[in-house]
Amino acid sequence: MAHDTHHPGAVQDAPLWPWLAAAVTTLLGLAAWTQFSANPPVALQQLAKWLPTLLLGLGANIGISVLAMALGTVAGLLIGALSLSTMAPLRGATRVYVQVFRNAPVLVLVYFSTYVFPFELQLHHWRLPFPDWIKVVLGLALPASANVAEIFRGAVQSIPSAQWEAAQSLALSRRDIFRLVVLPQCVRRMLPPWMNLYASITMATSLASLVGVHDVVDAAQIASNTVSRTDFTVLIYATLLLLFFAYCYPIARATQALEARHARH
């Protein structure tokens, strides 16, 4: 964490709003053009028609990202805790897990989980369908958990040993030191990298379309094939970029804001 250049108001001063203003102005301008022009460009007319489909698709991406991150966080914290264990074999196993899944291309993991898991689970007479989107959630949760584990381990080890010493001198038990002194400081340190991770997982959800999930990329492909105009294809992918940007950029800004706030306290 940077402890230097931050000062109160630094985040507010940073140029967040010009970007968003530009994006919103562009969208509004295009919308107005479509709405009020006697003869708006065909590509824009088509975009207006397809936008609801795109937004629904984006909903799928966001849903997948939230689920993958939730799963990855729970698993990652568990694995991270085990990676600090005093038992060497346990530590070794978690190291392998973390290294394997942090260093695997996400697309490979998505394909991997798609083909490894069955399309439905059968328990006696019960059939539990196992749709592709859940497999994508699992595929993304794997690298998420490995990264969360590493973030957690790093955070715990970044707490200065002087904090342990001070807490020991106050006669706190190991349990209390961990729970009341180390963990709360870890949460603060983990939050920014965790949010960064969430943003990259969100962007990685665009891979879902490759295994047949109807997400925003899939929606754009269908639209592009249906309309079949080069200018529309360019426009719809530009819109896709804008949508992802609009979702991920505020997360990145909030991350920086948190880092700045922690640097002050």
Binding site: A162, Q163, E165, A166, A167, Q168, S169, L170, A171, V181, P184, Q185, R188, H265
Partner: peptide, 18 residues
């Protein structure tokens, strides 16, 4: 039990920042 009876003040204060 020992540390309840012995206070320690450090060079770098070591307060809990959170």
């Amino acid at each position: 039990a020992l540390r309840r009876r012995v206070g320690f003040v450090f060079q770098q204060y070591n307060l809990f920042p959170h």
